[in-house]
């Protein structure tokens, strides 16, 4: 069976299997990705990030549901969801529970939900999440919602992967100082205050608005602040509209192409690094590596000197 051809024909089992290969970084996975790469670059990748308990999964559920029902398009968007949850650093296992909140989407063949464990990667995504998104892109999904694992303030990887990044906040979770901390707010293309029927929503919005005025790192796109109550569906059509507007903005400003370029560059650099390190490892003896490590531990050489020693094969 030619897996790439089956995926292009819309075979869901083939897609599911290819996702596993890619996630396990197998040889077959790389071949499928290469065969499909020419078909990528069309999907709108939407990142959804924010602290645990802000309602990311529920929001993704309602957004996907809304994109399936959009009446403005002739055929509704096909929606893929990649939901990332953390791998336990102690056991290597993971509990992936995002599907619990995505029951509304069951039985819809235009939706495909895939759970991914982070497998030791930091930054909110698994190292193979971008590759998984490429598969969905090639398979013809117009919208790909990527939900990060929600560890907090360091999840900037998603901004590199997504065209549009939603940062989800909720009233009462963090004070203004949380919002001032660098990173998470600066990656937001759209800010969402979920659970906005709860106390303190005014304070949260005021803090976010103040932050936005200071940030001003988007000269021609001011991130809108959207209030939602995901469990009730409140504010979802407006949020979806903002997402589509951001897409238009990216396309018209040339930013779409620019982000695509940056994404491919970071992927190229990453793969290059991995491959070079792997090649180098084949050339170096374990003994030299161990000896260098010992010298390092005894403070006979510095880390920089150790690296020099190792890349020159011991001739320094």
């Amino acid at each position: 069976m030619n897996l790439a051809a089956s995926i292009l024909e819309g075979n869901r089992l083939a897609l599911a299997r290819a996702l596993s290969w890619v996630e396990n970084d197998t040889h077959q996975g790389r071949e499928v990705l290469s065969a499909l790469f020419a078909h990528t670059g069309k999907a709108h990748i939407v990142g959804v990030t924010g602290a645990p308990g802000t309602g990311k999964s529920s929001l993704v559920n309602k957004l996907a549901w809304h994109f399936r029902k959009l009446s403005t398009t002739q055929t509704p968007y096909r929606v893929a969801i990649i939901a990332v949850d953390p791998t336990s650093p102690f056991t290597g296992g993971a509990i992936l529970g995002d599907r619990i909140r995505m029951r509304d989407l069951a039985g819809d063949s235009g939706v495909f939900i895939r759970s991914m464990a982070s497998r030791g990667s930091l930054g909110g995504l698994a190292s193979t999440t971008a590759a998984a998104a490429q598969l969905f892109d090639a398979a013809g999904f117009e919208v790909i919602l990527v939900e990060t694992m929600g560890v907090g303030q360091a999840e900037v990887d998603i901004a590199r992967l997504a065209h549009t990044t939603l940062v989800i906040e909720a009233p009462g979770l963090g004070d203004e100082i949380q919002a001032i901390k660098a990173g998470i707010l600066e990656i937001a293309d759209i800010l969402v205050i979920n659970k906005s029927d709860q106390m303190g929503v005014e304070n949260t919005e005021r803090a976010l608005r103040a932050m936005l005025e200071l940030a001003a790192n988007h000269p021609d796109w001011i991130p809108p602040i959207q209030r939602t109550v995901a469990t009730l569906g409140t504010g979802i059509p407006e949020l979806a509209e903002s997402i589509l507007q951001h897409r238009q903005h990216l396309l018209h400003s040339g930013e779409w192409r620019h982000r695509d370029h940056l994404r491919l560059q970071s992927e190229l650099d990453f793969l290059l690094k991995e491959t070079l390190v792997a090649q180098w490892r084949d050339t170096i003896s374990i003994n030299l590596y161990q000896q260098t490590l010992e010298d390092l531990g005894a403070r006979r050489i510095s880390p920089h000197q150790a690296v020099q020693m190792l890349v020159s094969g011991g001739h320094s």
């Binding site: 791998t87 056991t91 290597g92 296992g93 509990i95 992936l96 529970g97 599907r99 619990i100 759970s115």
Partner: peptide, 10 residues
């Protein structure tokens, strides 16, 4: 999970 498996809980 503690046995190192990835568990999708629905």
């Amino acid at each position: 999970r503690d046995a190192g498996m990835e568990v999708i809980y629905t």
